[in-house]
């Protein structure tokens, strides 16, 4: 029975499903690599973005200019080229290869991707958060002043928490973009989800099976991440919605299930 199903699939399916099934564990490992790389980049990039955004929102020209140059450079050029520059480019220099960083970090494709992705998302997140900080309602700031909050307290207790919440919807887009961008890792030898797809195609000389499998898995990941953010936004931004709207919000059925 099982054999005849396999035989049927091998003969009639336009997609080599058997081959995909045989290698599916590799795809799951690839998905894990993609998730790890994306999550780590977002954490490191996010932590970098906070001080950068505060500097960009402030008015110290000596600090502002270099940070502006950094965000402009990373936002104005493709992630692919940034990653190539770090992975393939840095190896050009003898002195970099002789530093202590070379062996454990820069000679590893994984860390090169992590550095490129983190800097990239730091640049985007910093500008996003800057916009959010600048748009903090004056009333909140004035109330804090009236209560005698110091500059630092005002930033920590009033401006940043409110800015984070308001930046959340736009930040969820940045997360999806980073997930999309992480496919670049497959071009520098990393076996991420797309890397496994390319491996499968290369190993068995296929045209599309590996890419289709990767595409479906990416789709599922993005779907889950978007749903997660939707719930998170609902929780953190509840105070910004009109009260009744929250109470009477219709339950979402499958029909309105869209990412």
């Amino acid at each position: 029975m099982g054999d005849s199903i396999i035989q049927f699939l091998e003969t009639w399916s336009p997609i080599d499903i058997v081959l995909i099934a045989q290698n599916f564990d590799r795809f799951l490992w690839g998905a894990l690599t993609t998730l790890q790389l994306t999550a780590m980049s977002l954490i490191i990039g996010g932590l970098l973005a906070i001080p950068l955004a505060i500097i960009r929102a402030g008015n110290n020209p000596f600090l502002n200019a270099p940070v502006w140059a950094f965000t402009y450079l990373f936002r104005g050029t493709p992630l692919l080229v940034q990653t190539y520059l770090i992975y393939y480019g840095l190896g050009q220099f003898e002195w970099i290869r002789e530093t202590f960083l070379w062996g454990p970090v820069l000679s590893q494709a994984w860390y090169c991707a992590l550095i490129a992705f983190s800097l990239n998302t730091a640049a985007y997140s910093a500008e996003l958060l800057r916009g959010s900080i600048v748009n903090t309602s004056q009333g909140e700031v004035e109330a804090a002043k009236a209560c005698g909050f110091s500059n630092w307290m005002r930033l920590r207790r009033i401006i940043l928490p409110s800015a984070f919440r308001r930046a959340l919807p736009a930040y969820s887009n940045e997360v999806i973009f980073m997930l999309h961008g992480s496919v670049v890792a497959s071009t520098i030898t990393i076996q991420d989800l797309l890397g496994v797809g390319r491996w499968l195609n290369g190993r068995y000389y296929l045209a599309y099976e590996g890419f289709i499998t990767a595409a479906v898995l990416y789709f599922i990941i993005v779907l889950l991440v978007s749903r997660g953010f939707r719930l998170w936004e609902k929780h953190w931004l509840a105070h910004l919605y009109p009260q009744e709207a929250v109470k009477t919000k219709p339950k979402k059925g499958l029909a309105s299930f869209r990412i």
Binding site: R97, S107, Q108, A109, T189, Q191, R203
Partner: peptide, 30 residues
């Protein structure tokens, strides 16, 4: 690739798109 996967399954294979890239990374010690 076929040879290595068959004869030396415990090796960490690093796969490149072109032979030039393999030489490049060998030269710089990756």
């Amino acid at each position: 690739q076929c040879f290595m996967e068959k004869m030396f399954p415990d090796v960490e294979l690093v796969l490149y798109g072109s032979q030039d890239e393999v030489f490049q990374d060998l030269a710089i010690g990756r």
